[in-house]
């Protein structure tokens, strides 16, 4: 039982983070907060990948003498590039927020809806 909990604890926290991110995206109206929610969701996916690649008693995947067990290098490669691409897309989203603020002079979703309907 204890083994099962320790063995799956990582995945459960990943799910908690994922759901916190999803909740922020669908329940909050502020656009910057929505972007932060998306980022939390994204980090939870990173943890899912890295958790799946971890090997018990393994070392970092850099070949060294006397080390027999390495963790899986493939998720590291995928997530490494995903982090940098993630910040690039976040910057793009923030740029869109800045433009929305300049056109509507608000970044609250409800107010933007009202402005659209009052035109």
């Amino acid at each position: 039982m204890m083994d099962f909990i320790i063995g799956h604890y990582n995945y459960w926290i990943v799910i908690v983070l994922m759901m916190v991110g999803l909740y922020t995206v669908i329940s909050r109206g502020n656009l910057i907060k929505k972007i932060i929610g998306l980022n939390i969701f994204q980090v939870s996916v990173f943890f899912l990948y890295i958790s799946l690649g971890t090997v018990e008693g393994g070392a970092a995947p850099i070949i060294a003498e006397g080390v027999k067990v390495y963790s899986n290098p493939l998720p590291h490669v995928l997530i490494l590039t995903a982090i940098v691409v993630g910040v690039a897309t976040t910057a793009l989203a923030l740029a869109l927020v800045v433009r929305i603020k300049e056109s509507y002079s608000t970044i609250e979703e409800d107010e933007i809806h009202n402005l659209d309907h009052s035109l």
Binding site: A60, I62, L80, T81, I83, V84
Partner: peptide
């Protein structure tokens, strides 16, 4: 090539 690091990290 030899330690942790590479183009992505260095650029940032």
């Amino acid at each position: 090539d030899f330690g942790p690091g590479g183009g992505f990290q260095a650029g940032v």
